[in-house]
Structure formats: structure tokens, C-alpha cells
């Protein structure tokens, strides 16, 4: 049996296109997650539980209120906020903990770099995976919103791509930041950043509740941009101002991805 060289009729190894490389990284992650699907499920449940507790439960006490000059039930106000937050959560989990494990413990990227794959392939593939995960969460959440009658515009169709964008923005930036993490303790910093954003980025109450400067700070956070974008889409209040959020989030994707690739070069190709 000849296991190497010159096997007639066999293809030779070659470099991959960006699309092929991304597909393979997704496939690898799919295989790994197949055995841990329940981990996948918890990320979906969290925002759903918040929707029922705060949106529906607390909403019954709050009643309708005015948003963008129109009266909306409280649950309909909270739901897009939870959608944006779920896109963030799904992608942050993959781009911090899981990315760190692959980088430092599983040495997954070292293995990949011994093949024709490049650091850009890795950054792109891992980001696509967290995107896919965020996308599945958001699509599922949108279905729940539809079933509960919390959607009042056809613009809502665009909320899935918007959620993907949110996921990509957080994923790219978190992957880049994770390359600087030294140990698991450092991930407390992630919670320290995402939890306040989750609670205060106009997710549960309008940004108009904040006084002057604080309001500016909140409006500058990435989750706020995501939340208002989703809310504008599901309530049909889309304006040119929505483009600001889109540009903000696209910039995060590009900067995060390039930074991540550079950091992987420095860490792995020494």
C-alpha cells in the first residue's frame, strides 16, 4: 500500500479560495458543536426569557407608551431590543470563550496554519461562524415576535440582516480583543462590558430617559446602535438616520477583522 506520492488519478493538494476556506471552518465548527447542541440552545433562551419576563410581565404594568410619535405596546418596544441583544450574546460567546479555547488550548489555529489556510481565512471563518450562530438566534427570535404579534412593519424582514451585522460587529471586535487575553479571568472584562450595555442601551426604556452627556455616551455604544436599528425596522420607523447605525457597525466589522488578522500573524507566525 502506498500512502504517499504519485497516486495515479488522485487530486493534488492546493490553496483554497476564501469561500472554500470559510465553508470548511464552518463545517469543522458544526462537527464540534453537534455533540454540544444544548450549549447552542441556552443562547437562544436567554433573550426569550427576558422578553416574557420584562416585555410581557412588566409590560402589563407599564401599558402602551409613545415611541417616535406613535403609541406602541411595551412588549413591542422591548422585543427588538432583545433581538439585538441576542445577536450580540450569540456572537460574543463564540468570539471570546470559544475563540480563546481554540487559540490557546486546542491549538486549533496552529494546526490550520500548517495547511494552505492563512490567518485571514481563520479570522474570516471564525467570524462567519459566530455570525451564523447569531443569525440563527435572531431568525428564531423574529419568528417568536411574529407569533406574538410584536411586528408591525414589512421592514422587519430586514431585521435578520441587521442582526447579522450586529453579530459581525461584536464578533470581529471581540475576536481581536481576545487575542490580548491572558487567562480565563480576563473574561470578566467581557461581562463588565456587555452586561451594562445589555441593561442600559435603550433595551428596556427609551434613551430619552438619560440626561444630556449620559445620553450621548449611551448613543455611542455599539449595542445601542444595534437596538435602535432593529427597533426602527420592526416598528417601521426607518429614516436616513438609521444609516448612521449601519455605517457604525460596518466599521466595527472591518476594523475588528483586520486587527484580528494582524494579531494572529503576530501570535502564531513567529
Amino acid at each position: 500500500m502506498a500512502v504517499t506520492i504519485a497516486e495515479v488519478g488522485r487530486s493534488t493538494a492546493r490553496s483554497l479560495s476564501a469561500g472554500e476556506a470559510t465553508g470548511l471552518l464552518l463545517y469543522r465548527n458544526f462537527l464540534a458543536y453537534r455533540r454540544a447542541w444544548y450549549i447552542f440552545a441556552t443562547g437562544f433562551l436567554e433573550p426569550l426569557l427576558y422578553l416574557f419576563s420584562i416585555g410581557v410581565g412588566v409590560g402589563a404594568l407599564v401599558g402602551d407608551f409613545t415611541f417616535n410619535g406613535q403609541s406602541v405596546p411595551y412588549a413591542e418596544f422591548v422585543a427588538p431590543g432583545m433581538l439585538a441583544a441576542s445577536a450580540m450574546n450569540g456572537s460574543v460567546l463564540d468570539s471570546t470563550f470559544n475563540f480563546f479555547f481554540k487559540l490557546k488550548y486546542n491549538k486549533l489555529f496552529d494546526q490550520m496554519l500548517a495547511t494552505p489556510l492563512t490567518t485571514l481565512d481563520i479570522a474570516r471563518g471564525e467570524l462567519s461562524w459566530s455570525l451564523l450562530r447569531g443569525g440563527i438566534y435572531s431568525a428564531g427570535f423574529l419568528l417568536v415576535m411574529l407569533a406574538m404579534g410584536l411586528v408591525s412593519s414589512w421592514w422587519a424582514v430586514l431585521v435578520v440582516p441587521a442582526a447579522l451585522l450586529i453579530g459581525a460587529a461584536f464578533g470581529a471586535v471581540c475576536m481581536a480583543l481576545t487575542t490580548w487575553m491572558r487567562s480565563w479571568q480576563d473574561f470578566e472584562l467581557v461581562t463588565l462590558a456587555t452586561l451594562p450595555m445589555f441593561l442600559f442601551s435603550a433595551t428596556f426604556f427609551p434613551v430619552s430617559a438619560y440626561p444630556g452627556v449620559v445620553r450621548w455616551v449611551v448613543e455611542a455604544t455599539p449595542l445601542y446602535r444595534g437596538v435602535v436599528l432593529c427597533r426602527e425596522l420592526t416598528t417601521g420607523a426607518v429614516t436616513w438616520a438609521s444609516a448612521v447605525s449601519v455605517v457604525y457597525l460596518v466599521a466595527m466589522v472591518v476594523v475588528g477583522l483586520l486587527l484580528c488578522r494582524r494579531r494572529l500573524d503576530t501570535l502564531l507566525l513567529t
Binding site: R14, L24, R28, L31, A32, R35, N106, Q111, T115
Partner: peptide, 20 residues
Amino acid sequence: TLDTELTVWENLFVYGRYFG
């Protein structure tokens, strides 16, 4: 540097696919 999240067979299969 094996992929500890995959089986023996999957390790070889996925790796082979990285070579196009």
C-alpha cells in the same frame, strides 16, 4: 496539536479537506 473537539476520523477528514 490534534483537534480535541473532534473524533479520530473527523480529525483526519477535516484536515484533509483543508488541503482542497
